[in-house]
Design a protein around this nucleic acid. Structure first.
Lengths: 211, 211
DNA sequence: TTGATTATCCCCTAAAAAGGTGATTTTACT
DNA sequence: AGTAAAATCACCTTTTTAGGGGATAATCAA
């Protein structure tokens, strides 16, 4: 009996080629496509998939959100995340949401097929080339990002949205002094000398969502 | 006689599938790969290509730079740019550098093969699905980005780097009043209420390079 | 050459952020 | 129950930005 994979990916180039690689391999697998998160979730209801290959950057939803929803509805489905940009916090969040593997689009075919085989065989957690190093923090880029608390990230978003300490204080029902404290801590943690630098860092590293 | 295409693209998934699509089509074309800009430029010297399929986001060089260099050395080679993100200013810059076509990775196979056929037949300028609309400004995203001058973008970079008006003034040998004027104009143009908003916009839209 | 844009410069006031130095209360974990 | 981390609040000073108002050269294209 053959297994079934759902490819959730908005780039036809990528999804079609993934299909080809998989069907051309010695794996006995059939593939279905979904070009966005909504179609993907709809597709899950009608079929019984063994694995979802999930792009992080979907047009209508964050891949992390998708993973969360899919895993809550169908805990048995394995999820292999695929992404273009190697961002440490994204990988971490995905794995927190229960993803079973993570590969980069810079991976070669063997890495991809290997990942599928690994995960379908029941072993937990496949990390593709480059991802392990990323998590270890050995990788050059995005290794030295500080840990921030829930409250800090909340305030960070509001700062990036252009709210002043006063406006943030009103919105969160706290004192401006408190907001100011958090702001200063953020500057410290990110080693930023002012708000401009702070925002540049967090936006470019994808620490906050820009919509 | 068959024609020759160079695919400059760092994602094996994409480059291998492009090759397949092309060789499987009725076009009589051979493909070579280069996984980064340096290899791509080296490759140009040893062969005579008809077309370069060029990814905008290369690990070692900006696609726009690559286009500039390639076109200056080999003016006859056609260039078809491919990108994941549909950013208006990127498309415009590419076309300024002499690119002969532009398609998005969200394009389907017909669009890609169609683009290649169009450009190789000698017609100028192929714009894939979604790109035309982008240039017209009809597209939802990134359509309302203001025009900024050379000086303004210079100051914008320094603002995002965390320099104060005073520091910028010293660096550029101008008055702080002048820097302040430019800063205010930038806030106006981007409809940003403060520096945080301004930086978020320009970083997320890729208007300044973050390194 | 004339008009438009760009870049430059100046002043004033008010608001906000940055830098420093504290403290208290919650929360979460062991 | 005890401790560490997080979140909260407070005050003071200085620097920087934001929001107004203007003005004058320089550049560039019609």
């Amino acid at each position: 009996m053959s297994q079934l994979i759902l490819i959730v990916e908005d780039h036809p180039i990528v999804s079609e080629s993934l299909t080809r690689f998989i069907t051309d391999s010695d794996l006995n697998i059939k593939c279905l496509h979904a070009s966005n998160a909504a179609k993907g979730l709809a597709c899950l209801n009608g079929n019984s998939f063994d694995l979802i290959m999930l792009d992080i950057n979907l047009p209508d939803m964050n891949g992390i959100e998708f993973c969360k929803i899919a895993k809550s509805r169908f805990p048995d489905i394995k999820i292999l995340a695929i992404t273009t940009v190697a961002q440490r916090h994204v990988v971490e969040k995905m794995l927190d949401q229960g993803a079973d593997g993570f590969i980069l689009k810079t991976s070669d075919i063997d890495d991809i097929i290997g990942g599928i085989r690994h995960i379908l065989s029941g072993k937990q957690l496949y990390l593709g080339k480059g991802v392990k190093e990323l998590l270890k923090g050995i990788s050059q880029e995005n290794s030295d990002l500080p840990m921030i608390t829930k409250r800090e990230s909340e305030i960070l978003k509001l700062i990036a949205d252009g709210l002043t300490n006063q406006e943030i204080a009103i919105q969160l029902f706290i004192s401006t002094f408190t907001v100011d404290s958090h702001r200063k801590n953020l500057l410290l943690k990110f080693n930023a000398k002012n708000t401009a630098t702070l925002v540049k860092i967090v936006v470019s590293k994808g620490i906050i969502d820009v919509t």
